[in-house]
């Protein structure tokens, strides 16, 4: 489903060079839930943002369903509608109601009619458990509710892959659970997911595979049992000692 080959993203500015993602090669299979963890600044968010073209690659290849994002002829907008993304800061559209947030891209990008888009939106709102908030503006919702709307908005495009960029990091602790529950349900339904998170519990419980990144490099990957109980790499052990 997603293949990254020697992926590099280098930021340059003011004479310094930051190798945010430095030669990551991995293969994410259809239906797999991959959790990317690592210390802050390790390049995991940048890696995720590369997967739907929000960051342009410096070098390497990303193949999504056989389409190479590094190829200049690739229509990124076409790829993006197959790849949903959920952000740390939700990024809901504040000038639109919850329902309109979910409808807009369906109409503009997928060219669905209003009725069809509304039905889809209501069905998804029900799924994430906030069917009663459809006519509310995002500013009036709690963080957890906003993030669930954001998930519904991404799902409305019928993506083949969902990317989550620290979806619970900006939430009050008591709201983390409701968002993770929605994500767990998605995983059970067989959605291909790449999740950057600090929720070790979620990684252990839901992930098929854990990827540990540090300084832009993929340091270690494996099943959660393997990673959380007997990591090979010293840096992974250090990290786990800090967070567990």
């Amino acid at each position: 489903m997603i293949k990254t080959v020697d992926l590099k993203k280098i930021f340059t500015g003011r004479g310094t060079e930051v190798r945010a993602v430095d030669g990551v090669t991995t293969h994410i299979k259809s239906g797999e839930v991959v959790v990317v963890i690592g210390p802050s600044g390790s390049g995991k968010s940048t890696y995720l943002r590369c997967l739907n073209g929000l960051e342009t690659l410096t070098d390497g290849h990303i193949m999504i369903d056989g389409i190479d994002l590094a190829d200049k002829k690739t229509d990124l907008n076409k790829v993006r509608r197959e790849v949903g993304m959920v952000f740390q800061q939700f990024n809901l559209f504040p000038h639109k109601t919850v329902l309109d947030n979910i409808i807009l891209a369906q109409q503009v990008v997928r060219k669905r009619n209003r009725k069809e888009a509304e039905d889809k939106a209501r069905q998804l709102l029900k799924k994430v458990g906030i069917a009663d908030k459809e006519s509310v503006y995002p500013g009036h919702l709690s963080g957890g509710q906003q993030q669930r709307v954001a998930i519904a908005r991404a799902l409305a495009m019928d993506p083949k892959i969902m990317l989550f960029d620290e979806p619970t990091s900006a939430l009050d602790p008591e709201m983390v659970g409701e968002v993770l529950d929605v994500m767990k349900q998605l995983a059970r339904e067989g959605m291909t997911m790449v999740v950057v998170t600090h929720e070790m519990g979620f990684a252990r419980e839901v992930a098929d595979r854990v990827i540990f990144m540090d300084h832009g490099k993929l340091v270690e990957e494996g099943t959660p049992e393997h990673f959380f109980t007997e990591p090979r790499e010293e840096r992974a052990k250090d990290f786990l000692r800090q967070v567990l």
Partner: peptide, 17 residues
């Protein structure tokens, strides 16, 4: 905020949209 453009782009909208 930059996130607004990113969210729109991540949903498959092009820049004019």
């Amino acid at each position: 905020p930059k996130g607004q453009m990113e969210a729109a782009r991540s949903l498959g909208m092009n820049v004019p949209q």
